[in-house]
C-alpha cells in the first residue's frame, strides 16, 4: 500500500543523503520526496511517498526514527490529512487548440505563469488525482516541458479519525 510519511529532520547538510541512503540501502522504494524548511530554520520537513506492506512500512518508520537527525516521523496515511502537489507544464498547442488548453487550465483552476509565441506555461496545484487527470487531458496538445514538485502533506485539525 502507498503511504505518505512526513519527517521532521535537523536542517544539516547530509540529512537528505542519510534519508535517501536508508531507502536505497534497504531496498525501499521512494515515489516522491520533497524537502523544505519549516518556520524554524534549523528544522526541515520532508514528505516521502513510498509503498510497501505493513511490515515494510513499519520498518521504514522505525528506521527513519533511528536516524540520529530525525526528530519526528508521522505516517500521514493513518491520519486525516491534506495532500497537495504542484506541477508546471509548458504546452505548445496548435493555434486552433490554444483556447481549449486555456479552458482546461481554467477548469482545473490552474494559472498561466508564462507565455511565449508558441507556448503557455501552466501551474496546477492539487492532489495527485487532479494532477494526473490534468496531465492526461493536456497531453494530446503537446507537452514540451514538465516539472512536478512531489507531494507535501499536513494533518487536518479537529476531525477525528473514525
Amino acid at each position: 500500500m502507498r503511504h505518505t510519511i512526513s519527517v521532521l529532520v535537523e536542517n544539516k547538510f547530509g540529512v537528505l543523503s542519510r534519508i535517501s541512503g536508508l531507502f536505497s540501502g534497504r531496498g525501499y522504494n521512494i515515489e516522491s520526496l520533497t524537502v523544505g524548511e519549516t518556520i524554524d530554520p534549523q528544522i526541515s520537513i520532508m514528505t516521502i511517498v513510498t509503498t510497501g506492506d505493513d511490515q515494510i512500512i513499519e520498518q521504514i518508520t522505525k528506521q527513519l526514527n533511528k536516524l540520529i537527525d530525525v526528530i519526528k516521523v508521522t505516517d500521514m496515511t493513518e491520519l486525516d490529512h491534506v495532500e497537495r502537489e504542484m506541477v508546471l507544464v509548458k504546452v505548445s498547442p496548435k493555434q486552433e487548440d490554444k483556447a481549449e488548453v486555456l479552458r482546461l487550465a481554467e477548469i482545473f483552476r490552474g494559472r498561466i505563469v508564462d507565455s511565449g509565441p508558441t507556448t503557455y506555461t501552466l501551474e496546477i496545484t492539487g492532489d495527485e488525482k487532479k494532477i494526473e487527470a490534468f496531465i492526461e487531458l493536456v497531453k494530446p496538445y503537446g507537452i514540451k516541458e514538465f516539472a512536478r514538485t512531489g507531494k507535501v502533506a499536513i494533518s487536518r485539525e479537529g476531525v477525528k479519525k473514525k
Binding site: 511490515q55 513499519e58 520498518q59 522505525k62 528506521q63 526514527n65 533511528k66
Partner: peptide
C-alpha cells in the same frame, strides 16, 4: 533496545 530489530 533497537526498535528496528523487532519484527524485522
Amino acid at each position: 533496545i533497537d526498535p528496528t530489530s523487532i519484527r524485522k
